[in-house]
Design a binder for these strands. Sequence first.
DNA 1: TACTTGTTTTGATTTACTCAAAACAACACA
DNA 2: TGTGTTGTTTTGAGTAAATCAAAACAAGTA
Lengths: 160, 160
Amino acid sequence: MTTTRASHDGAALRLAAADASLIADSIRSAGLKVTAPRLAVLRALTGMPHSSADALFGAVRSDLPGTSLQAVYGVLSSFSTAGLVRKIEPAGSPALFERRVGDNHHHLVCTRCNVVHDVDCVVGHAPCLTPADALGFDVRAAEVIYWGLCASCQAETAHP
Amino acid sequence: MTTTRASHDGAALRLAAADASLIADSIRSAGLKVTAPRLAVLRALTGMPHSSADALFGAVRSDLPGTSLQAVYGVLSSFSTAGLVRKIEPAGSPALFERRVGDNHHHLVCTRCNVVHDVDCVVGHAPCLTPADALGFDVRAAEVIYWGLCASCQAETAHP
DNA sequence: TACTTGTTTTGATTTACTCAAAACAACACA
DNA sequence: TGTGTTGTTTTGAGTAAATCAAAACAAGTA
């Protein structure tokens, strides 16, 4: 069993290493320096999309103690301007971050438990990008948030 | 000229009075007590839609000094739960309020000057209310914000 | 006119985030 | 393999927006 466990650990380590170098690559190719806090934040965000700066800080702190919350804010801000992560700001919630960028997907937010899910656009690719009357605006982005009850909160409210 | 002005003032006063009583009526019929701060806030909001609590506080203070900012927050919160006003929270901005409620209209926000305009929905009445895959959510509302440059900011950025 | 209930004031507190300066580390180049 | 430049992180302070709680007060009702 020890041997098996060791070999599993070895596989996990190789995977983690491959993952780490992929993450480092994506940071580097965004034109940013690769640092420990950046690796830690991007790795945490991979495992927990739609996370707040504070939640990521908690995750990062456990495997890289000494990282400051301000560093997490700084990392997320540089990632965001580099196009490496996307920032969403649902009403009544702190800003959330996700690695899925470049498509125009939208979000479902549960009004009860605040869980967030990604959804693709209703009408194809660039649907909501054209309002009925743009009133002279040069529209660059459309942001859509669907508010409702997620499946498990529907179940819970049905059986209180 | 004095007579004319007086008659205009009279008309304006009658209009203002009619307006004030209409505003009082809408507060009352929302099941809320009619108070001076509420009248002042709702009147200010009529003249300046898409205003923040702070902006409304500024407007209200000038014709009802002694009103506190917290009172404005309280007024807006009771209006909001009574369905008398709608609260929108564009990313990076304090919450904004408007009297136009009950339809599912959306918003155009200028990324440069932050001006907000209302727009009707793209695909008819309840279009965006149906995401491609709701993932088990019971969707109750869809919020759409279009980000772009308003006409005058386009002109200004073209001629810097 | 007084009573009850809801509203507003006053003052403190919280959350999410930003700013600035000094210490430090990554990457390029010698 | 060290050295320098540049960008990043830490440390510490500060801000904006909003919320909470208790006491003073006013609206509507009887």
